[in-house]
Design a protein around this nucleic acid. Structure first.
Length: 818
DNA sequence: GACCTGCTGCGGTATG
């Protein structure tokens, strides 16, 4: 295998034999690779990016070491493969071993992650495999071992797999920092070759920059020159007039989805919410009992073992359908899946594409995805998604900047292994994308915070973590080192209780708050089982099987993904099209009666218009506004508007919002007219108005909790031992106050505020949308009754104050007739 | 009888 033609041939043959398209390593890319360049490979999921890159690098190695090929040699660690998912690590390892066998290469492939057994770890300590697949957290744990540089002396290549998944998060920052150290260790040798593997995102160039840290003019992006064909079809109700105007469940359309499931080999049904998967699972079985045993459900609060069982069953093709949340979004491909149903809004174009890509894995096959709306208006999203996909309006992943919490954790990691020299690490860190704008002053603050505890905590010894000897920093406390190892990582979880059968066997986790409301004997549902709650013991909820007909579905406090900016803007455009009358989209056609009603009662906004509805009901005076900017932006915008209106005249509001718009409700007439409505959206005095109206301190306080945990200021207790969430929250709050009062320059405090502005208020997006609205036409209507647009928002705001029974009554009364 | 919202991911000790 001396020449590249032979190498290329091996790759092509292998990929073809394994049903994957050999498009990634084109001649040109291969050339880049063997010249030792770094870069980024981009292609849709399931198209063999991983394998092409892997084969390419192995064959390149063979070319460079022709004599060692096929010999059992101890080469040491050659390649580090970073993956965000443990499950993915296993998949990749399996495929790699297969490839190596075929090439007759006696290389070892190892996995290093949380579930790597101790014996394997010790084995690896003695001798590293040639290829190590690792998570970002485990990489940092390696960097926290004594003599860690020895492990990496032979390393030539690092691959960041699923880089788009890590990029926008603090886990991505961990990768950046890890890479900076590995590059530092490689100084004096051939520079590390670093490759990213990424699905399509809006900012691929930036993704490469983040991976590289310092610009590298020779680095390349290898793009797949193919368009994955995706076909979207909506599941339409027979009579749109009878389909709900609000809601998020979608079970009314299940009878229409069932034939699709029955006619497919294997179907994935994606929902947005964990409780929703439980509800759908039960509902499917109720309507189609013959599916018992052939369907399963999968979400993040179901015990790992059960999930793995479901995943294996998917691989083997023995399941007819799996109801799941985005826990099945990542990496691992399930070939038997031929049909995907998305229930409700996917909230973003990228996520939708990814889910669609779960079907039709075979090269050239069309991925088909069904969209099942949970309320009428959501059908517009289907039409918008089609347009967005056609135009490739995939969202960007914004890299995290200046995450001082992660930096502090990292420095401590280096401190507990061999210690570090300030100047050397400063050099490396400012070479990362995340910290390239860090000032010398900030660096000095960080070091002094770690050695003294900073201005507020200097009198507490436990915060003097590192000892300083000239420019050398090291942690000499075994106790602190131990604690630190337990806290490496950036994922801060909420306190959950495990659920276990009395007879043995874990089922999953639920929130403390949910179980606190249960009485022994109550029935609830988890992982598809109906369970009877027996008691709590050792922070575990013990249950037995129940035959109860009615069971409470647990709810989990999860994230609230807002509608993405991309999807929002296409959505606004789609409304314009819907009213143009010459649309061919079935989703828009079927909605025509609804649009007509909206137009008669009020107005359907065009692309360059903002609709404001003033409605009086027995509840009071409502102002509905529809920017289609996602709920986070709406929340802040609503608060801002309420404040600006109240400056005109004393008035109080209650606020409600969803992804499409928001509501201000008052008991007095709301003073907004055509003449003065524009100035409510003005950028003038925006910062001061925001500071007065939005409680930024409270938002920052909430953000600070994670920051304090990541920076290692709060000890979360030993594994297995429970520490109530309350304690965590209160100690974080305490620290927040202490910093605010005694150390206002504290960088972690500052970070909490900037995270609140960036992630919670989405300040940049808020500004953009205000500017857009300010330059748009604003149409104020005064409908005589609630409109299809405002209905979902109104229902949401009622839900908080009413029981579901009363709510159903109220909704019946509220709903206007066509 | 139902117009029930709120995702995902990782990691770890020590003694007999």
């Amino acid at each position: 295998m001396k020449n590249k033609a032979r190498g290329w041939q091996v790759i092509t043959e292998w990929l073809a034999a394994h049903d994957r398209q050999p498009f990634v390593f084109q001649e040109e890319a291969w050339e880049h690779y063997i010249q030792g360049r770094s870069g980024l490979v981009n292609a849709p999921t399931g198209y063999g990016k991983t394998f092409s890159l892997f084969l390419g690098s192995v064959i390149d190695w063979i070319n460079q070491h022709p004599k060692d090929y096929k010999q059992k040699t101890k080469n040491g660690l050659q390649m580090l493969w970073i993956t965000p998912l443990r499950a993915l690590a296993k998949d990749i390892a399996r495929a790699m071993i297969e490839v190596l066998e075929e090439l007759d290469m006696p290389w070892q492939v190892g996995i290093r992650s949380g579930d790597t057994p101790v014996s394997t770890r010790q084995q690896q300590k003695k001798q590293m495999p040639e290829i190590l697949i690792i998570t970002p957290e485990s990489l940092h744990l390696l960097l926290g071992q004594k003599d860690y540089p020895k492990v990496f002396t032979t390393l030539t290549t690092v691959v960041a797999d699923e880089w788009h998944e890590l990029l926008g998060s603090k886990r991505g920052v961990m990768v950046e920092l890890g890479l900076s150290r590995l590059r530092g260790l490689a100084k004096g040798r051939a520079p590390l070759r670093v490759w990213g593997i990424s699905a399509t995102i809006g900012n691929l160039d930036e993704a490469l920059d983040v991976l590289l840290g310092k610009p590298d003019p020779t680095a390349v992006i290898v793009r797949a020159r193919l368009d994955k064909q995706i076909e979207l079809q909506s599941i339409l109700p027979d009579e749109i007039e009878k389909y709900p105007w609000a809601g998020h469940l979608g079970t009314k359309l299940l009878p229409k989805a069932l034939p699709i499931i029955l006619n497919s080999k294997t179907t994935l049904i994606f929902t947005n919410v964990r409780s929703q998967t439980e509800i759908w699972y039960h509902e499917i079985l109720r309507q189609c009992p013959e599916l018992a045993g052939a369907i399963a459900l999968h979400h993040g609060s179901i015990d790992m073992e059960l999930r793995v069982w479901v995943e294996d069953a998917l691989h083997e093709g023995i399941l007819k359908a799996v109801v799941c949340t985005s826990s099945l979004d990542l990496g691992v491909d399930f070939r038997p899946v031929d049909t995907v149903i998305q229930v409700g809004s996917p909230k973003g174009v990228a996520r939708f594409l990814q889910r669609a890509g779960r079907s039709g894995h075979q090269p050239g096959a069309v991925s088909k995805i069904w969209f099942l709306p949970t309320h009428s208006l959501e059908l517009v999203e289907a039409a918008a998604l089609k347009a967005a996909m056609k135009e490739q309006l995939v969202e960007s992943r914004m890299p995290v900047l200046l995450a001082f919490d992660v930096l502090i954790q990292y420095l401590m990691t280096l401190g507990i292994s061999d210690g570090f020299h300030g100047a050397e690490i400063w050099e490396e860190i400012t070479g990362t994308f995340c910290f390239r704008d860090m000032t010398e002053e900030e660096w000095q603050w960080t070091l002094s915070f770690l050695t003294t505890g900073g201005e507020a905590l200097y009198s507490y010894d436990e915060f003097k973590k590192l000892e300083r000897e000239d420019d050398f920093y090291i942690c000499r406390s075994r106790q602190l080192a131990l604690r630190h190892r337990l806290h490496i990582g950036t994922i801060v979880s909420d306190a959950m209780l495990k659920v276990k059968f009395i007879s043995g066997g874990f089922i999953g986790v639920i929130e403390e708050g949910f179980i606190a409301r249960l009485q022994p004997g109550d029935a609830f549902s988890l992982a598809g089982h109906t369970l009877e709650f027996v008691m709590i013991k050792d922070m575990t909820a013990l249950v037995r099987k129940s035959k109860a007909k009615r069971a409470i579905i647990p709810s989990w406090m999860g994230g609230r993904l807002p509608l993405s900016a991309n999807l929002g803007s296409v959505l606004r455009r789609t409304f314009s099209e819907a009213m143009s009358g010459n649309t061919t989209e079935p989703e828009l056609k079927i909605l025509q009666p609804l649009f007509n009603l909206q137009e008669n009662l009020s107005h359907v906004p065009k692309d360059d218009e903002l609709l404001v509805e003033k409605i009086n009901t027995q509840d009071g005076f409502h102002l509905f506004v529809y920017p289609f900017e996602g709920r986070l932006v709406h929340e802040v915008m609503a608060t801002l508007l309420a404040y600006r209106i109240s400056k005109r005249q004393p008035i109080t509001f209650s606020i409600a919002m969803n992804d499409y718009g928001f509501e201000l409700l008052s008991d007095q007439e709301i003073p907004v007219t055509d003449e003065d409505v524009h100035e409510l959206f003005s950028l003038e005095n925006l910062s001061t108005d925001l500071q007065t109206s939005v409680n930024a301190t409270e938002m920052a306080r909430r953000k600070f909790r994670d920051i304090a945990v990541i920076a290692g200021l709060i000890f979360q207790g030993y594994p297995g031992k429970h520490k109530a969430n309350r304690h965590l929250q209160s100690s974080a709050s305490l620290l927040f106050n202490v910093f605010r009062d005694y150390d206002p320059q504290n960088l972690l405090l500052r970070q909490a505020f900037s995270e609140a502005f960036f992630y919670q208020m989405e300040e940049a997006r808020l500004r953009e949308s205000l500017e857009r609205i300010y330059n748009n036409k604003i149409i104020i209507t005064e409908p005589a009754q609630l409109t299809p647009f405002c209905f979902p928002i109104k229902v949401d705001s009622l839900r908080e104050s009413l029981t579901s029974e009363k709510l159903a009554d109220r909704i019946k009364k509220m709903r206007p007739q066509f």
